[in-house]
Amino acid sequence: MTQSVTELTVTPEDRRVAWLATAAVGLSLVDAAIPSPLPGVKPGLANIITLVVLLRYGWGTAVWVSVLRVLAGSLLLGYFLAPGFFLSLSGTTLSLLTLGAARHLPVRWFGPVSLSILAAFAHIGGQLLLARLWLIPHDGVFLLTPVFAGAALVFGTINGLIAAKLLADTPATDSPR
């Protein structure tokens, strides 16, 4: 075997990010398979992974996992660099920023459910903002805000509960297998 010029050393951290991103991509696919009455209203199951990662491994890892998920998910579903990709990216960016701020809330009072709801609102906010600024430059976009916000609240709560359950059920090991 020829010796490679550049040596890429794979750290356990890299492996962990890869595994978690894979799980998130898997959930993105499940998400896409669920029929939705309205484009944009989706359970956002992959956010469960983001939440678990955030609370267990920190914000940096959560950013990695989320960005990889958006990239790989869009490639698999065939909307890479399509409008949906940018909507996804803007939603994810805003929700990651929100999570970055919200994780400093007192843990005793605010659990995964709070983080999930805030992230869901930020996600739909980011998407609507980009849609308004770029895709449909008309205030008519905001007509569906109550529907989107309602869906964000419901799915945010459910995803937060699932994340809380996962965190409670699995002991904190350093490297997931």
Partner: peptide, 11 residues
């Protein structure tokens, strides 16, 4: 039981 007090507030 998975809800924390603040979660209700956020909800």
């Amino acid at each position: 039981a998975l809800f924390r007090p603040g979660d209700w507030l956020i909800l």
